[in-house]
Design a protein around this nucleic acid. Structure first.
Lengths: 201, 201
DNA sequence: AATTATACATACAAGGATGTATGTATAATT
DNA sequence: AATTATACATACATCCTTGTATGTATAATT
């Protein structure tokens, strides 16, 4: 084989990301080799090293892919009025937890994400993006506080911390104990996070 | 060197665990070699392979070490009356989150634990212990529900899920964004988890 | 049409890391 | 006192994995 058209090249990049997601989720980040990923996509390591600098860059690309749709969601939410913001934040949480129930792609990405967050290099490389998302959330919770909808024991900063901790904690629990994670549980969890952040009227 | 007395051997085992904790926390689980751990303890890989089967067994031993004091704590809590149980569960959470603020040993163990939980083999090897802890918590929350202290939207199972998710989520957030984690934040977090689980009277 | 840059595949070199086998001085046992 | 089992250290073989260098067919460019 040899040179493909740019569209085809873009497709192989996507294929590599999909293969990486699948193999990472199955074997674990550390124990997967680039050869396994390439093979899973019907390609060779040459293709990977062409599209990505190395394994770490591949993981960062996966992270971008996971973050993208929700980054936009936060932008949309930010446009709302303070009175609608709590509902908006709950909507995002609900969408994330619901997706984890049945979406295999989401499940695989969460698995990978959980492992990546244990790596300091990954955290350093993605710090800018994570800070940006955090900034959006902070603005939202500041507006929520100004509107008087935030629980009195919270600052906007602690609310962001609790919000993200809750979601990532649910991800971790889903991975450690998937049997307990069903629709009824999700609804209870959402009710819990709601009262832990917002006043009830 | 050669054979040591049994007490000395026990000491080297402890030294190896301490060295493993330090190096794992600094370099990351995957990127740490057994030679680095041995060197950090002033020993060789021979010592490690004598006391532990391999790297995974070492990690499991660390997990045991982390779990031990809190397993006992849950036992003590279980002896309380239903009316005191919510307070007891909050006490454990508070102790965990407070320890993370300033205890370097706790911080290192949490770092390692976060990475280990991304590994399926680790989860499989520790499933029995984790199930046992979960069982204790389930009993506690069942008593709490029977006493009428549990939020109406919760089942005992979902309460356990939320409780653990909250704590592990705080661990993950601390690791990802340590700057936001201070005493004031911890107090807000505890207030949040309290209202998300228990009725307010 | 000729050239150049691209999108990979293939081949190669090098470095570790692991597991195990072996050595050994000494504690424990008899 | 002699033997044996222990608690490591040392040495070795093996296997991958990564990174890079090179090859190459073809798209894109001129």
């Amino acid at each position: 084989m040899a040179r493909r058209t740019k569209q085809e090249a873009a497709q192989t990049r996507v294929a590599l990301l999909a293969a990486a997601t699948a193999v990472f989720a199955e074997k674990g980040l550390a124990k997967t080799t680039l050869a396994q990923i390439a093979s899973h996509a019907g390609l060779t390591r040459g293709a990977i090293y062409w599209h990505f600098e190395n394994k770490a860059a591949l993981v960062c690309a996966l992270w971008d892919q996971l973050l993208e749709p929700y980054g936009e969601l936060f932008n949309e939410i930010g446009m709302r009025t303070p009175a609608e913001l709590p509902q908006g934040m709950m909507l995002i949480a609900e969408r994330l937890l619901r997706q984890l129930l049945d979406d295999p792609q989401m499940q695989a990405l969460v698995k990978v994400s959980l492992q990546a967050h244990g790596d300091d290099e990954f955290l350093a490389h993605t710090k800018a993006q994570r800070d940006e998302e955090k900034r959006k959330m902070l603005l939202a919770f500041q507006a929520i506080e100004a509107g008087g909808y935030l629980q009195d024991f919270h600052t906007p900063s602690s609310a962001v911390f609790l919000y993200v901790a809750f979601i990532s904690g649910c991800f971790e629990r889903w991975h450690s104990d998937p049997q307990s994670y069903d629709l009824a549980c999700v609804e209870s969890l959402l009710a819990g996070i709601k009262v832990s952040l917002f006043k009830d009227n």
